[in-house]
C-alpha cells in the first residue's frame, strides 16, 4: 500500500542573484513499512525533499499525496495539525525539549493530540523500553549522551503512531557505536510497528542498513534501488 506519492515535484529557490532548482522533477512513491534512505552529495536536494515531504516547505510545483491527501491543499494551520497526526520527525541535532524529562518528551506530541494520560503512559513506557532507556525515563536531556538523546527523539517521533517518520541525517552527530545502536532500534521499530522510515544521509552505516536507496543529484533522482 502506498503511503506517499510524489508527482513531478519541483522546488525553486529564488535568491536575489541565482535561481536554485533544489528539487527538479522528482516522482517517487513509498509503501507502508519501508526503510528507505535518500543519499547524495551536499546540495543535491536531500534536505529540501525531506522538508517538502514533511510539509515544512511548499513545493513550487508538483504534488505530494500522503494517504491520498494533497499537502499543498492544506492551509498552514491544517498542515501543522496534519504533521502532528501523521508525521514523525527526527532531527540531526536531537532537538528535545530541555526542560522536560525523557518520558515527558516522548509524551509531548501525544499530549498535543489530547491522548488520555493513561494511554500516553502506556505508550511511552513501551517506547522507552524499545529504545532501551526505560531506566532513564525521569532524566532530562542534558544528562543523556547524544546517542541516548537521539533514541529518545526516535521514541518521540513514533509516539503518536505516525504514517511515516522523516529523519534528516539522524546519525551525523553520533559515534559509530551509538549510530549502530540507533539504527538497530529504528530497524526493529520499523518492523514491529510497520511505520515507514525515510532518512536523508551520507552516512554509509545508514545506507548499509537500508532496504531501499534513492540517490539524488542536482535535485533529480539518479538511482532508486531495492536491496535484498
Amino acid at each position: 500500500m502506498k503511503v506517499i506519492e510524489i508527482k513531478d515535484l519541483h522546488k525553486i529557490y529564488n535568491s536575489t542573484q541565482i535561481k536554485v532548482h533544489a528539487v527538479n522533477g522528482v516522482t517517487l512513491s513509498f509503501n507502508e513499512g519501508e526503510f528507505a534512505t535518500i543519499v547524495g552529495p551536499s546540495g543535491s536536494g536531500k534536505t529540501t525533499l525531506l522538508n517538502l515531504l514533511g510539509g515544512l516547505d511548499n513545493p513550487t510545483s508538483g504534488q505530494i499525496l500522503v494517504d491520498g491527501t494533497d499537502l499543498s491543499t492544506l492551509k498552514p494551520s491544517a498542515l501543522t495539525d496534519f504533521r502532528m497526526r501523521n508525521i514523525g520527525f527526527v532531527f540531526q541535532s536531537y532537538n528535545l525539549i530541555p526542560v522536560l524529562t525523557a518520558k515527558e518528551n516522548v509524551e509531548f506530541i501525544m499530549s498535543l493530540q489530547k491522548i488520555t494520560a493513561k494511554d500516553r503512559e502506556e505508550r511511552t513506557f513501551e517506547l522507552l523500553k524499545a529504545v532501551g532507556l526505560a531506566d532513564r525515563a525521569d532524566t532530562r536531556p542534558s544528562k543523556l549522551s547524544g546517542g541516548q538523546q537521539q533514541r529518545i527523539a526516535v521514541a518521540r517521533a513514533l509516539a503518536s503512531k505516525p504514517k511515516f517518520v522523516l529523519a534528516d541525517e539522524p546519525t551525523a552527530n553520533l559515534d559509530t557505536k551509538s549510530a549502530y545502536v540507533l539504527l538497530d532500534i529504528m530497524e526493529q521499530l520499523n518492523r514491529e510497528e510497520k511505520i515507514t522510515f525515510i532518512f536523508s544521509t551520507h552516512d554509509p552505516r545508514v545506507v548499509q542498513k537500508a532496504q531501499r536507496v534513492i540517490t539524488l543529484e542536482d535535485g533529480r533522482v539518479v538511482s532508486d534501488e531495492l536491496k535484498k
Binding site: L56, T80, M84, R85, I87, F89, F91
Partner: peptide
C-alpha cells in the same frame, strides 16, 4: 522544532 512536530500557532 515545536512548530515542526505539530505545535500550532
Amino acid at each position: 522544532m515545536l512548530m515542526a512536530v505539530g505545535m500550532n500557532r
